[in-house]
């Protein structure tokens, strides 16, 4: 992320609520507090029946994976781990597949999109 692209608000423009770092902190705290609450929603399933996707399999001995869904905090944990795994693997993928922006366009003799101005200067 090069800095010149993120110049910040133009001089003289009034700051917005989201421009204040302390408000971002407040939002972040509120968000993580809400996360903790949704995690604890699983307590409700002590009182209300949870409709598991693999209901019939859970009681069977080979239904270990299927029964995981009924564990306390399964969905919260799954969502969290999925994203961490996704991001870590994607960073690895980037090493494999990332190329410069002109990787395809440089195969052509004509100027790539956006370089017309430079060409005009030469002309």
């Amino acid at each position: 992320m090069s800095d010149h692209n993120h110049a910040g608000p133009p001089a003289g423009e009034a700051l917005r609520w989201l421009d204040h770092p302390e408000n971002i902190k407040r939002l972040t705290k509120g968000f993580f507090a809400l996360c903790a609450l949704t995690f604890l929603l699983d307590v409700a399933f002590f009182f209300v029946h949870k409709h598991n996707s693999f209901e019939s399999k859970i009681s069977e001995p080979e239904g270990l994976v299927q029964s995981a869904e009924s564990w306390f905090g399964f969905y919260s944990l799954y969502g969290f781990v999925a994203i961490v795994l996704l991001v870590v693997l994607s960073v690895g993928l980037r090493k494999l597949v990332m190329r410069p922006e002109d990787y395809y366009s440089r195969d052509y003799d004509e100027p790539a999109e956006g370089t017309d101005d430079q060409e005009a200067h030469h002309g």
Partner: peptide
């Protein structure tokens, strides 16, 4: 409930 949990924690990550 499970969908909200999945999404909230994915967002948390």
């Amino acid at each position: 409930v499970t969908q909200v949990q999945l999404l909230m924690f994915a967002a948390a990550a």
